[in-house]
């Protein structure tokens, strides 16, 4: 039996969860995630979330720092959009129950802001040193309690279903209709259809032998989108931690 909804979300990191909460205002949401829903790259984010929160900071400085790091390849419109939307989105996370570390510094509006490499001002909101886990936990609790969001854990999307693939052609009008989804426990594959589909599967650290990412980060979303013919860009830019604690693999697919 096909699973029908208005919105299909693939992935349960912060992007998938926050989209689900918003889309659920307008319709029914189905969210699939291949492990338990809390096992995501978001959870392992140790730094924090950068946003202009201090009276001593401003949008232009955050834009400039981002452009400088990007070595001439950032799209300034995207940078400006993200930077200027930042404070509103961070306040939304706070309203959803994320508890960022506070301080009594009036200039930083009551929050403890860290300074990180490449930032010219203190602007990193954090929840001690487990920001990702705190964000994931708070937003996941809201999603789990939402009556119009159904979470399918231990479900892995195999491939997107598109008009072109159904009609076996490479050109002409296309549309994404949903995905084939594999139930990792029963072994069944089911059709999931939706008016709109969001890919929010996170990163692909597991393409390398040594990675700081959790086991789930196998680039499923990029691979699926590429096979469906979506445009892919800039995959040569993989960020490495040069001095990650190295310990040999303990199991065949486990070596964080």
């Amino acid at each position: 039996m096909a699973v029908k909804s208005d919105f299909l979300v693939i992935g349960s990191g912060i992007a998938g969860l926050s989209f689900a909460l918003k889309a659920a205002e307008a319709g029914r949401v189905t969210l699939v995630t291949k492990m338990g829903p809390e096992e995501t790259n978001t959870k392992y984010a140790q730094g924090g979330i950068a946003s202009v929160f201090s009276d001593e900071d401003d949008f232009e400085l955050h834009v400039r720092d981002t452009l400088e790091a990007g070595a001439g390849l950032c799209h300034e419109d995207a940078v400006r959009l993200v930077v200027t939307s930042g404070p509103e989105r961070v306040r939304e996370l706070i309203a959803w129950g994320v508890e960022f570390t506070r301080s009594d510094n009036a200039a930083s509006n009551g929050y403890d802001l860290h300074l990180e490499g490449g930032h010219s001002r203190k602007r990193i909101l954090h929840a001690a040193d487990i920001t990702g886990a705190a964000v994931e936990r708070a937003v996941l609790a809201k999603v789990a309690a939402h009556p119009r969001i159904k979470v399918f854990d231990h479900h892995m999307a195999i491939d997107l279903i598109t008009r072109r693939k159904l009609e076996r052609r490479r050109k002409g009008k296309d549309r994404c209709l949903g995905a084939y989804v594999y139930d990792t426990k029963s072994g069944d594959v089911e059709v999931f259809v939706a008016g709109a589909t969001l890919i929010a599967t996170g990163g692909s650290g597991k393409v390398y032998l040594i990675t700081s990412n959790p086991d789930v980060a196998s680039g499923d979303g990029v691979a699926m989108a590429a096979r469906a013919g979506a445009r892919i860009a800039n995959m040569e830019f993989m960020q490495f931690h040069p001095t990650c604690l190295f310990h040999p693999p303990r199991g065949k697919f486990s070596d964080q």
Partner: peptide
């Protein structure tokens, strides 16, 4: 692809360019 959206680390939005600034990704 119409009807297909993407967000988060899986995407290339133009924000990071050739190198990511720390802590910009959750944002």
């Amino acid at each position: 692809i119409p009807g297909l959206y993407a967000a988060g680390e899986v995407t290339c939005t133009g924000l990071h360019g050739a190198n990511r600034l720390a802590s910009n990704s959750l944002l």
